[in-house]
């Protein structure tokens, strides 16, 4: 059968090793678009003739909480719909908010977090969240396992540092102590690719504010200057921040973006949009103004 359906991770790795160049199929919501459009040659001559479908591997479909380390590890095959279910949605509210904006119910039933990473579109809705959370991605191949920082996995527009034959197994993100949220601008009120997006997370214990942006650079980007600035102006316990600091935070975020003009929007609007979203997210995180 040219479509192989391993039910264990070991089998999947072995099959990928045995069939170099095989296509990996997760939820199919990106790969099938390319096949339908004829942009991904398959099934003839020099094209890939083997597909490894990873949607029946139980290890990839689960998630676990490590209370000692205060982390959640999410299998690569967990769907957006599952990320919207409790208790996961309360543990990782920004990821749930991002998942709610992904495509349609049909897409959320099929599309997976691992697939989002594997495709590595700058507009991938889950990616700003994983970036803001400093996610660690666990990879597996016949050569063994390795962990990479999510930022080292995303190397360009739809380009990752995955090696041939390597699979995304799971993603570990920390459980933070503080507000977190996601925001996405699109031209429609549903089912829309991000014109620009942002995820802001706060952590009382480390006294940090972190923000990542989507659709404004070749990959998702973090905003170190804005984060450093925010650390000095917010009060995590009182949940306050001054108005002028909110404005400055927005400017610093916008300065980090490197957007382009395309058929979906303009660079100027995208820069503006991330500035506005950054301000609003910071205000949501710290609704009070210091006395």
């Amino acid at each position: 059968m040219p479509v192989l359906t391993p039910v264990s991770l070991d089998d999947a790795v072995r099959l990928l090793d045995a069939h170099p160049g095989a296509l990996v199929l997760a939820g199919g919501t990106d790969l099938m678009v390319e096949i339908n459009e004829g942009h991904r040659p398959i099934g003839s001559g020099g094209d890939p003739t083997v597909v490894v479908a990873v949607d029946r591997i139980a290890e990839l479909r689960t998630w676990t909480v490590d209370r000692g380390a205060d982390t959640v590890t999410i299998g690569a095959g967990v769907t957006y719909r599952e990320l919207l279910d409790e208790p996961l949605a309360s543990l990782l509210p920004a990821l749930a908010e991002a998942s709610r904006t992904v495509g349609s119910p049909q897409i959320r039933n099929a599309g997976t977090l691992g697939g989002n990473l594997g495709t590595c579109s700058p507009a991938g809705d889950g990616l700003p969240v994983l970036s803001a959370l400093d996610a660690v991605v666990h990879l597996v191949s016949a050569a063994g396992r390795r962990d990479v920082d999510v930022h080292d996995l995303m190397v360009g527009v739809k380009r990752t540092s995955l090696a041939p034959g390597e699979l995304i197994e799971s993603i570990t993100v920390p459980l933070l102590d503080g507000w977190q949220g996601y925001s996405k601008v699109g031209v429609r009120n549903a089912m829309v690719i991000a014109t620009a997006s942002a995820c802001l997370v706060t952590d009382r214990s480390s006294r940090t504010v972190r923000i990542a942006l989507g659709s404004v650079a070749p990959t998702v980007v973090r905003c170190p200057d804005a984060e450093a600035f925010a650390a000095g102006v917010v009060d995590h316990d009182a949940r306050t921040v001054p108005d002028d600091a909110v404005a400055r935070f927005g400017e610093l975020v916008a300065a980090t973006s490197r957007p382009i003009d395309d058929h979906r929007s303009t660079a100027a609007y995208r820069r503006h949009a991330v500035e506005v979203m950054a301000r609003r997210l910071l205000r949501r995180a710290f609704p009070g103004r210091p006395a």
Binding site: M1, V3, Q106, N109
Partner: peptide, 12 residues
Amino acid sequence: HLVCSCLVLAAS
């Protein structure tokens, strides 16, 4: 699960 059948590889 409700899905778009155009995005399901039939043989999978």
